[in-house]
């Protein structure tokens, strides 16, 4: 499992037709974009079980939603959405939703769940990290140690859930006490957009940045190395690792499309054949089929590759800004 999947899914053997997977897409807006979500009925959470041929909407239509996280071992029943309104939670696979947060939390961007104790949930927001130890019923602000509280991503160390990583606009931060306090781990001053913990190698982290490309650490973040050879855009919104092949990585960029590395990030090559939008905000490798890659574009919906990124076809949600993709398998 990739770190991305650690955040979201466990096998279910559910009723999927292709690869026994369900893809979840969170769309932020469409061409009818309104900054506050007005007149915009096609936003929110969608799922497909046939690789993008058909989609089903779940939950609120008119909302500002940034990402979805599925609770491990919940069989896809428990879903968290990080939204402008706060954190929404469904305990019945998306049929009904509760706003778990009050007025104190807004502009929530990402959710991470402690795999050892799924009642412990972290929300990365525009105002910092919030933590719940009650499955979202109560939240506490956990920003001690941050220089900047704009945190677009948060990841729980899959091998030690005491350790949490947070992406901030001022570098990557680490907490070794379940978010009670934070310290700068590295990449000071760089806007970190996304964090991926390697599913193959303990202590290996990859981050995508606002303007500085991709960095890798193989020692749990103590040192970092830029790995941008061949990368034509240094704004990296998303990263994905092939769950079967540890050297195969994918990066989604602003204006550059998708890049693929087959040597662990030492070199990158664009793989955009068939992509009609090159602003990529979400990437996912099907954990059951390394050839099946999904990308969410800004304004162009979802694209699907069934040959490991060599070619892409349109996968639905036309004109949508697809901010996040995740999978239940």
């Amino acid at each position: 499992m990739t770190a991305q999947h650690l955040k979201v899914a466990m096998p279910t053997g559910s009723n999927n037709e292709v690869g026994k997977t369900t893809l979840y897409a969170v769309t932020r807006s469409t061409e009818k974009f309104r900054i506050f979500g007005r007149d915009n009925p096609t936003v929110g959470l969608f799922t497909t079980s046939d690789r993008g041929k058909t989609w089903q909407h779940w939950g609120w239509h008119y909302t500002k939603c940034f990402s979805a996280t599925i609770e491990p071992n919940s069989d896809g029943k428990i879903i968290y959405l990080a939204c402008g309104n706060g954190v929404q939670k469904s305990s019945d696979s998306g049929k009904n939703w509760v706003i778990t947060t009050g007025w104190e939390m807004t502009e929530c961007l990402k959710i991470a769940i402690d795999p050892e104790n799924t009642e412990t949930v972290y929300a990365a927001t525009a105002y910092g990290i919030f933590k719940s130890q009650t499955g979202g019923q109560n939240w506490q602000e956990k920003n001690r140690g941050f220089e900047s509280t704009f945190t677009p991503d948060v990841v729980v160390d899959p091998h030690n859930s005491q350790v949490i990583y947070a992406a901030t606009e001022a570098g990557i931060y680490i907490s070794t006490n379940r978010a009670e306090s934070w310290r700068l781990l590295g990449l000071q001053g760089k806007g970190i957009r996304t964090i991926t913990y390697s599913s193959h190698t303990t202590g290996t982290l990859l981050v995508g940045t606002e303007d500085d490309g991709i960095f890798i650490s193989t020692n749990s973040g103590e040192t970092w190395q830029a790995i941008n050879d061949g990368l034509e855009s240094l704004t990296v919104y998303c990263l994905a690792q092939d769950p079967q092949h540890d050297r195969v990585l994918y990066a989604g960029t602003f204006r550059g499309g998708v890049f693929k590395s087959i040597d662990g990030g030492n070199s990158w090559k664009g793989c955009n054949t068939g992509l009609t939008r090159l602003d990529i905000h979400a990437l996912l490798v099907d954990p059951t089929d390394s050839n099946a890659i999904y990308c969410g574009t800004i304004g162009g919906g979802v694209f699907v590759s069934e040959d490991a990124g060599a070619n892409w076809r349109f996968g639905g949600l036309e004109t949508s800004q697809v901010w996040d993709l995740t999978m239940q398998y």
Binding site: I35, F36, W60, H61, Y62, T63, K64, G84, N85, W103
Partner: peptide, 12 residues
């Protein structure tokens, strides 16, 4: 019917 809270002071 869900109702969006908005993101400005007057919205809230």
């Amino acid at each position: 019917r869900p109702l969006y809270r908005g993101d400005t002071e007057n919205h809230w």
